[in-house]
Design a protein around this nucleic acid. Structure first.
Lengths: 211, 211
DNA sequence: GAAAAATTGTTAATTATTTAACAAAGAGTT
DNA sequence: AACTCTTTGTTAAATAATTAACAATTTTTC
C-alpha cells in the first residue's frame, strides 16, 4: 500500500464524494459496479483501487460505505487538516471559495489575497481577504500549507514566487501560465483552455472513446 | 499521425499558448528544451510530440515558432471554429467567459444559460444569457457544439440531459457530480475538489516527484 | 578542414495504468 | 446437499505514456 498511483489518489477522492452522497441517503453497502457506474469507469478498476488501499469488502454484499469513507479519509486526509489560501479574488477565486463552503472536509480555505484595495479587509463567503504583501506573515501565522493561484495569467509567476518565499508546501495553479517552483513543493497545474481545446479536438474528430 | 495520444493533444494546446507568447515577443525559432522548460517536461517529450504531428525542425536552429503554431492549429482547431455555451452563470461560469474574452481562438463562447430571472437577457462580458428552457432552440440556431456545465453540482444531471437533448456534441462538466451521456458525445469532467485533495495528499506524504 | 558541440528525429526500453481472466466463496434454489 | 449465480480479490496480460539511447547532421571552433 506504500505507493499509490496518482490516478488512484484522484479516484479515491471521487469515490469518497460519491460514497458520502450514498451514506446520506442511508445506503450502508455498495457494490464495485455501482461505484463504477457513478464514475463511468469499470468495476475492476474500482476493486483494484480498493485492493490497493488494503480494504476488503464482503462477498456478495459489497463494501461497507461508512468504513470505506473512513479509510479513504485516513489515506488522503491529514488528522489535523490542512489550511489553504486563495490568491486572486476574481470570479475564479470566488468560485473556489464558494465551492468549499459547507463541504465538510479536512481542507479549509482560511485566507484570501488580492492587490485590489477595494477587496482588502473584506470577507468573502467567510474568508478574509488580505493584501498580497501580507502573504508571508499570514501564511506563517495561520499555518497555511497550500496556495491556489487564481490571478490573471500574467501575474502567476510573481505570485508563485511569493508563495514559495512564504514557505508554502503545495500549489494549485489555475492560470494558463505554467510556473516554476523548487521541486520539494508539490505543484499541480490545470488550465481550462486546454480542457476546452481538448474537448473541441475530440468533437472535431468525433471519436467517442470514453466510457 | 492518425491517433494522437490524449496527453499529446493536451500538450499541443499548451505548447501553442507558450509559442504565441514567444511569437509576440518576436522570437522566430525555439528549441525543444526551451519549450520543455516552460512546460516543466522533458525535451524528448516535446520532440516526440512534434514528431507525432509530422513537423520537422531545423537542426541546430530549432522549430520555427509560427509554423509550429499554424500546424498545431491545423490539428486541434476546426477551420470554421466551434461555438460554445456556458450553462450556469455563477462565479465559475463567469470566470470561464472572462477567460476566453480576447483570446483569439477558434472557440467562441456565444451563449450562456441560467434559470435566474435576474440574469436572463443580460449580457455578461459580451455573452448573452438565456433561460435554460431556450437551450435547444439557441443551440440549434447558433450551431453550438460544446456545452460547459458550471451549475451547482445538484443540477448537473438535469442540465446534462438537456444538453444531450439539444444535440450537443461535447460536454465539459465542472461540477463535482459525474454525469451520464450517450457515448457518441465526448465528455470531459474536471472537479476542483479532487485536484485540491490530490495536492493535499502529496503535501502530506511530502513526495516531491514532479519535475 | 578536422574535431567538438549542439540539437533533431526515431527506435527501443521502461514505467504507469488499465483491462482481462479467473479462482474462491457466500447466498439462494431446488 | 448439489447447483447456480453473484461478487470479491488478485495475478497476469494488454495498452498507454514516458524516457533513454543514439545515429545523423549542422554549426562553431580551432
Amino acid at each position: 500500500m506504500k505507493n499509490l498511483p496518482h490516478k488512484t489518489i484522484e479516484r479515491l477522492s471521487q469515490y469518497r464524494r460519491a460514497l458520502l452522497i450514498c451514506a446520506a441517503k442511508g445506503k450502508t453497502h455498495i457494490f464495485s459496479h455501482e461505484i463504477a457506474k457513478i464514475q463511468h469507469i469499470t468495476p475492476v478498476q474500482v476493486r483494484r483501487d480498493i485492493m490497493l488501499i488494503g480494504y476488503t469488502g464482503t462477498l456478495r454484499k459489497g463494501y461497507n460505505v461508512q468504513e470505506l469513507i473512513d479509510l479513504i479519509g485516513d489515506i488522503i486526509d491529514t488528522k489535523e487538516g490542512l489550511n489553504v489560501a486563495v490568491v486572486g479574488i476574481g470570479n475564479l477565486g470566488h468560485a473556489m471559495i464558494n465551492y468549499f463552503n459547507g463541504k465538510r472536509t479536512k481542507l479549509s480555505i482560511v485566507a484570501a489575497f488580492d492587490n485590489n484595495p477595494d477587496k482588502i479587509g473584506r470577507v468573502f463567503s467567510g474568508v478574509r481577504c488580505y493584501h498580497i504583501d501580507e502573504m508571508a506573515g499570514i501564511i506563517k501565522q495561520d499555518n497555511i500549507s497550500i496556495g491556489i493561484i487564481t490571478v490573471p495569467a500574467g501575474s502567476a509567476p510573481e505570485i508563485s514566487e511569493k508563495l514559495v518565499e512564504s514557505k508554502i508546501k503545495g500549489i494549485l495553479n489555475y492560470t494558463a501560465k505554467p510556473v516554476n517552483v523548487p521541486n520539494q513543493i508539490y505543484l499541480e497545474e490545470y488550465d481550462m483552455i486546454t480542457s476546452l481545446e481538448k474537448v473541441a479536438f475530440f468533437v472535431k474528430t468525433h471519436i467517442s472513446d470514453n466510457s
